[in-house]
Design a protein around this nucleic acid. Sequence first.
RNA 1: GCGCCUGUAGCUCAGUUGGAUAGAGCAUCGGAUUUCUAAUCCGAGGGUCGCAGGUUCGAAUCCUGCCAGGCGUACCA
Length: 562
Amino acid sequence: MYPAVKAEIAELISSALAEAADRGLLPAAELPPLEFQIPREAGHGDLATNAAMLLAGRVRRPPAEIAGVISELIGERLSGRDMISRVEADPRRGFLNFFIAPSAVQAGLVRLLASSGGFGNTAAGGSRKVLLEFVSANPTGPLTVAHGRQAAVGDVLANLLTAAGFEVCREYYLNDRGRQMKILGRSVYLRRRELAGEEIDFPADHYQGEYIRSLARRIPDPEEGWTGIGEEEVVEYCGDWASASLLEMIRGELKDFGVAIDSWVSEKEVVASGGVKEALAELSARGHSYEKDGALWFKSSDFGDEKDRVLRKSSGELTYLSSDIAYHRGKYGRGFSSLIDFWGPDHHGYIARLKGSMAAFGLDPEILEVVIVQLSTLYEGKQKLSMSTRLGEFISLRQVLDKVGKDAARYFFVRRRKESHLDFDLELARKQTNDNPVYYVQYAHARINSIFKKFQESAGEDLPDFAAVDLAPLTEPGELELVRKLMLFPEQVESAALGRNCHLIPAYLEELAALFHGYYSANRVISEDRKLTAARLALSRGVQMVLAEGLCLLGVTAPESM
RNA sequence: GCGCCUGUAGCUCAGUUGGAUAGAGCAUCGGAUUUCUAAUCCGAGGGUCGCAGGUUCGAAUCCUGCCAGGCGUACCA
């Protein structure tokens, strides 16, 4: 609805401007691109533009005077048009405030009701392919709360991008190789020996968590027996088995968290397939690497990094960076217009070198977009929960899921800007009261369902065909405000997707729910007036559809009853 | 030292490309249910937008400099 109205307003203003010039009311001037905003106050109309302020410099008149002339001339043209009912000029600053005609608002609702889902979808993406890599936790332990937030934000962004017309692939990069794997293998191996009765001085830099003991208890004997092969092979055996079983656990956690990964890429395979060798050879061929102190270095300082980075250690081992470079180089050949990575805040220093490496290959580093998601702190009411990973005391995503459930967990993780550190109060997320925003939104959805049930019971008839209902009876300010809010949904989805601002969706849903709860308290949907009842049922249905769609984008259920 | 993020009501935070009197929830206080779910609604109080300059019709928003907090600054991942 709004795009059409905006186009209409632009046309009205430019023709008013031309006429003003003809009549000598204002000097001739070209209209700059219009900027619109939705006024906070009802008295300022439904849509406002600052056209007069933008023109002030060009025509050398005060904004308020220009606005007055324009609104006067537009006012003369409004009869016969059905989108705009009225225009007013703000006499102080020069805003032009437009009031959208109720019939135009109602027409928007008809479109929503006639849609069968996907009302919020837009074509902004033009079916371009986007690769979204997120979570990507090492298979060395359970997913943490930090992973949980990344998973929630990443998954919701994927949903939003899909709704905005992109084709999204969710990818998980598995760091199943390297130092951490060795430490994992050793950790399990040592715990295993401990279980066998040996006194072990467990190293502080090994994985301390209780889950390591549990793995050590469950690990099957190697074919050759525990002593039949060398210690190095035993450790490798332990590492392989442990990472495989931890991966199974992670898959289960993601599944229960509502996250479906489309593509799993193993670091081991990237190395084994020769991808790393190839990438290093090309870097060298392009003259962007060199040997020093027995190590191979990437000249990342040529690409905006603060210093050069090691690709292959003097020990001969590959660094994580080299396989990551190879992995990301591979992403470029897969036909994506955009490559998005989700990383924790402790990795932000890594951005320059990775993007630099893409530039070193002659690839466009702008295609690669790194999104940093800040950490969360868990609370039980006022009490802060310990997050020490070293001691293995961290709260896992699984524990959060057990405590508050998938809906609340996902909703809370997404609710804040990703740049903000999140305070996640488990006690609040569990509460079934009005201070819990998840329930607040879900309740609005369920409440509407209850109205429908009540109507069917008391009237003894089926719900009307909503798309065919005459909406003319919807004239209350609260009703039109609700519809206008509904019409904003597609823009909101698109803006959240393009700006990677998932938190806009919970905010929007809470506002919509608040409008509906308020409307519900002040007005009765079901009444003696059959036409009004039908129109209000249709309005409620529209609200319910958008709530359900928004919750679906968040991966949160929209309950029929609560 | 340098880099990234953050600083808005007692608390947790919104605030689109600079726009009208800076908003919401919680907490506090006061109200609302013979009527479709009170997991709801209505109202009140509460602010030097970290500080100081600058840019302009106009700054929480942009620029510069400070202050405070978090994270990073590995031949770890």
